[in-house]
Design a protein around this nucleic acid. Structure first.
Length: 286
DNA sequence: AAGCGTGTCAACCGCATCCCA
DNA sequence: GTGGGATGCGGTTGACACGCT
């Protein structure tokens, strides 16, 4: 298709953001809310591309972002969701409150991808000429990784049928950031919003059936619904400088192991139901 | 201590899709 | 119905940190 770049890039700053730029962006969004990214830099006094501003906000400055290491529970959920959804990072992120698609993508590529590769190698050693299961992505090069079915995390989900629908944009819920900082209302994490008018792929239909898991998984999930999220004492400097809590110091919420299992079971059941329906439709067509 | 290799992750880029005039 | 601007998504890049030799 092709289209003109979003910004002329002439006279625009690139590279790492400075604290001053962050301050400008945060203050502007707090005052005016998210959106209108194209005009935002000019209005906020930033020499940045609108896309860059959006990315900085979505991936780093949003007050509801949870920083720190991915917990084992989160990792487990990422792996399971990846086995079901493939590289649809925004959908996966939508099920991990406070985590961004970029963060999950990076985590997968640097941590889980490697582990997966090792698992795959072990599987191949253990099952010579083995199963017809779809093998996971070859991540020796990222280009190979692209467009490959991804599945097979250990034995647990070895036989899971993987749908890898074409990546597509889905509409977020209406956002008015200055009214609410609800973590699930971010662009990258509201993939299941009710604004979907386009063609939803199979999995999104499945996912639509699932309840919003945030409050189920994370105790005190309502904690970040206020304009000021829970802060650690160490973030006091950031607060005084920026007027918002330092996302780096936000207190992470505990997770529930059994709830994760329950979620996964729900996915499996819904997939089964979906597959049954597909078979039924196919039989009618024959 | 210095050089090199590797891992991590913030940021960029191109494209798909939405949305509105 | 259509064209173009706005936005979102996933892949990729590159700077920096860290460990090893």
């Amino acid at each position: 298709m092709g289209r003109a770049p979003c910004c002329s890039n002439v006279g625009l700053q690139k590279g790492p953001w400075t604290a001053k730029e962050d301050t400008l962006l945060i203050n502007y969004i707090r005052a005016h809310g998210e959106g209108h990214w194209r005009s935002l830099p000019k209005k906020a006094g930033l020499l940045r591309c609108g896309k860059s501003c959006r990315l900085r906000w979505m991936n780093y400055l949003r007050p509801d972002i949870k920083r720190g290491n991915i917990t084992p529970d989160e990792e487990d959920l990422i792996i399971r969701l990846h086995s079901l959804l493939g590289n649809r990072w925004s959908l996966i992120a939508g099920r991990l409150p406070g985590r961004t698609d970029n963060e999950i993508k990076n985590y997968w590529n640097s941590h889980l991808g490697k582990r997966f590769k090792i698992n795959t190698r072990n599987d191949q050693n253990n099952q010579k000429g083995g199963s017809a299961c779809v093998r996971g992505p070859k991540i020796s090069t990222q280009k190979n990784y692209k467009n490959q079915d991804s599945t097979a995390y250990g034995e647990k989900i070895m036989t899971t049928k993987v749908h890898l629908p074409k990546a597509m944009r889905v509409s977020p819920l209406p956002i008015t950031r200055n009214n609410s900082t609800d973590g699930m209302a971010s662009g990258s994490s509201t993939s299941l919003g009710d604004g979907n008018k386009g063609v939803l792929d199979d999995h999104e239909e499945v996912l639509k059936c699932l309840p919003d898991l945030r409050d189920d998984i994370f105790e005190g999930g309502e904690a970040n619904h206020d304009d000021q999220p829970a802060c650690d004492r160490d973030s006091a400097d950031f607060v005084s400088n920026y007027g918002v809590c330092d996302p780096l110091y936000q207190i992470s919420e505990p997770t529930k192991d059994d709830m994760l299992d329950k979620i996964y079971e729900e996915y499996q059941q819904l997939l089964k139901a979906e597959n049954s329906l597909d078979s039924f439709v196919d039989s009618l067509l024959i």
